[in-house]
Structure formats: C-alpha cells, structure tokens
Measured scan of single mutants.
Amino acid sequence: MGFKLLSKLLVYLTASIMAIASPLAFSVDSSGEYPTVSEIPVGEVRLYQIADGVWSHIATQSFDGAVYPSNGLIVRDGDELLLIDTAWGAKNTAALLAEIEKQIGLPVTRAVSTHFHDDRVGGVDVLRAAGVATYASPSTRRLAEVEGNEIPTHSLEGLSSSGDAVRFGPVELFYPGAAHSTDNLIVYVPSASVLYGGCAIYELSRTSAGNVADADLAEWPTSIERIQQHYPEAQFVIPGHGLPGGLDLLKHTTNVVKAHTNRSVVE
C-alpha cells in the first residue's frame, strides 16, 4: 500500500471513529477524501466538511520552486461564519470567499490569524475590503508590521502568557507558548472536538522541520505538551499544512522538532 493511500485511509478511519463516538456532533463529509496538494491548482481553494458547521479550507501556493498546501478553518456561528487564517495570499483568499459563498452561503463576518507569517495573514486586506472584521493577538499584529505583512485590524486580548485561553464565538483560542513562531495560536472547536494546530503542528508525513527561522526550538516541545494537557479530548487535529489526523500529530511534531534540534547540535 502506497504512503499517500495509507495517509488518506488514516484520515478516513479517524473521521469514521469520530462519527461513531459522537453521532450528534459529527456529520463528516462523505463526498470524498481530504484534498491534497496535487489536486488543488494554485489560485483555487477546496472546502472539506469535518463536522456539522465545521470545515477546513485548503489552498496551495508556490514557494521556492515548489507547491505547498495550506489549511485553515471555518466555523459556523449562528447565521454567520468565523474564518481562521487566510488562504495564503490575496488571490487565494478572494477564491476562498467565493467558494464559501458557493458552498455554504453564509457571510464571513470575523477572521482570526493564528500567527504573523504570510500563509496566515496574506489576504487580510481582501477580507477587510469584503467587510470582514480581522483579528490577531497584539504580538501577531506587531510582528506582521515588522515583517511588512498585512496586519489584522483588531487585537485579541488575554493571550499574552503561555497557557492563556479565551473564548471567541464558537471557538476557544489558546496560546501554548512559542513553537513554530513566538505568537502562534491554537484554535479548538469544543462542539466538535476539532483542534486546529496551525503551523505549530505537523502532518504525519512530514519528517523535516522546514521553516524554523522564527521558531523557538527549545520551547516548542513544552508548548505541545500544554496543548495535549489542555485538549486531551480532541479527536480531529488539523495541521497548518497537509493531512489531518488525531492527537498523534502532536507527538510526531515533537519528535521531528527534537530530531532537528539534535542534528543542529551535532553539526
């Protein structure tokens, strides 16, 4: 069995187990497998329904001669939608809004960016022009300005110390501490036991640490421990890039980060 097929099978099995364990909360999309990078042309966006009122959005972007996937989250909030992270750029984010209108038909009224990198804030200006209120932590807003990236308009308070959590509509926002970046936030959907790890969490097929220019490698494993301790009931975990899975993604990420750190020390 090929690795790609095995990865998709694991996603399907995880979703099936969740649907059985929580039949009222989960209505997993039966329309197909989780979209992969090879299936999404740059400039297009796919939506994948995880649970009743919960979707991931998947886009792709060219970077350094390669094409990478990027995940975000959409959560229903009454007759409105909360968006977590842009679709990595203005063109993708405009396509995301169009796809949401086509498939869901509810307005996106608020959006949260989970850290300051372009795959999370690139497209904020498109959201703002569409009347979406954009939010991020003060740290993310400051770092985005320093980096020359787009800056969300509103500040999220109460997320300055490791372990801080605040309720934001249908989700809980959690600051686990520094990891992929010093400002990275985690998003949890309690009604569906869905954990969105953003770039602080890796997919299972990833074996290298990737972009760690703004990471705190020493603190990252401790931050992941905080996530595990705060959300032990999480059933569906979405990484910032690639295929979702279960809580095993947290341990896998820790292993990859520690291996990278150990290699760096040896070198």
Rank of each mutant, 00 (worst) to 15 (best):
I40W: 08
P138G: 09
T36V: 14
N149F: 09
G169R: 05
L9K: 14
S62L: 07
G105N: 11
Q229E: 13
S56Y: 13
L173V: 11
L156F: 06
N255V: 12
A133I: 12
S27H: 11
S137H: 06
F174P: 02
A133V: 12
G210C: 05
P35N: 06
D118A: 08
I74F: 06
S16M: 05
L97G: 01
D125L: 06
L13C: 15
S137A: 07
A59H: 07
T93D: 00
R46F: 08
L185S: 05
Y135I: 02
Y68A: 15
P232V: 07
S193T: 09
V187M: 05
E33K: 13
E219W: 04
V28Q: 09
Q228T: 15
S193D: 13
Y68N: 08
S155R: 10
V112A: 07
Y188P: 01
V11T: 10
R46P: 04
P35K: 07
D79C: 05
R141C: 06
S113F: 06
S181C: 03
D118R: 05
I17V: 11
A21K: 15
A25P: 13
G169T: 04
C199V: 00
T182I: 11
V187T: 03
H230P: 05
A200F: 03
V54W: 02
S139G: 10
E147Q: 14
P244N: 01
L13D: 05
V146S: 14
K8G: 09
A25H: 15
W220E: 00
S205E: 14
H252A: 03
D119E: 04
E101I: 06
R142H: 14
E172M: 04
I58E: 05
R263C: 07
I104R: 00
A59Q: 15
L249K: 00
W88G: 01
Y202H: 11
N71K: 05
P69G: 15
H230F: 13
I40Y: 06
A179L: 02
G210S: 05
A51D: 10
V257Q: 02
L217D: 02
V212R: 05
I238T: 05
L73E: 01
N211H: 07
R142A: 13
L173T: 04
H57G: 02
A213M: 13
P221A: 10
Y231E: 01
P152D: 01
F116E: 03
E150C: 03
A259C: 05
Q61D: 05
L247V: 14
L13A: 14
W220R: 04
N184F: 00
Q228D: 07
A25E: 14
L217W: 07
E39M: 12
E80C: 06
L10S: 15
E80D: 09
E219N: 09
V108N: 03
N211P: 11
S31A: 13
I50S: 03
T153F: 10
A59R: 04
F168S: 03
H241R: 04
H241D: 04
S155C: 06
E225R: 13
A234S: 09
G89S: 06
V171G: 01
I20S: 09
S22I: 10
C199Q: 00
L250V: 04
A136Q: 03
V256P: 00
T36Q: 12
V256Q: 03
W220C: 05
T14L: 10
H117K: 02
M18A: 14
N71G: 02
A234W: 01
T253P: 03
S7I: 09
S162M: 10
V212P: 09
L106I: 12
V171L: 06
G197T: 03
I100A: 06
A178G: 10
I227G: 02
L156A: 03
T86D: 00
F63T: 09
V132T: 07
I227F: 05
A192L: 06
L250F: 08
L185C: 03
G122F: 04
Y12A: 13
G242N: 04
I224R: 01
H241W: 00
I224W: 02
V189H: 05
G72N: 02
E44R: 13
L5D: 13
S30E: 13
E101H: 15
V266L: 14
S160Q: 13
L127P: 05
A209Q: 09
V189M: 03
A218T: 12
G242Y: 03
Y34N: 07
E80L: 05
F63K: 07
L5P: 12
E150D: 12
S137G: 04
V257T: 05
R142I: 12
T86M: 00
A144K: 03
P69R: 09
A215R: 04
N211A: 13
G65P: 06
F174A: 01
A213F: 09
H230G: 08
A90R: 10
G210N: 05
V75D: 05
R167V: 11
G163L: 04
F63S: 10
D119C: 02
I151M: 09
V187P: 02
E172R: 02
A25R: 14
A192M: 08
T36G: 10
I151C: 04
Y231R: 00
A178W: 07
A218F: 11
V108I: 10
D29I: 10
V112G: 04
A15E: 06
S137K: 05
L82D: 01
S193F: 13
S27F: 10
L143C: 04
L195N: 01
V54F: 06
E33W: 10
L106Y: 10
L9C: 15
P239M: 00
R142N: 12
S30M: 15
H154P: 04
E157L: 12
N149H: 10
R120Q: 02
V45I: 09
M18W: 08
L159G: 01
D79R: 11
V67N: 15
V67S: 15
I50L: 09
V189R: 00
P244D: 02
G105I: 02
T14M: 08
V121L: 06
S191R: 11
G53W: 07
M18P: 07
P244R: 02
N149R: 11
S31T: 12
P69E: 15
K251G: 13
P23Q: 14
A59S: 15
D125F: 05
G72F: 05
E80Q: 13
P221Y: 06
A66Y: 15
S137Q: 07
A59M: 05
S62F: 06
G53K: 09
V126P: 02
S38P: 10
L217Q: 06
G131W: 06
P176V: 00
I201P: 02
G242T: 05
A218V: 13
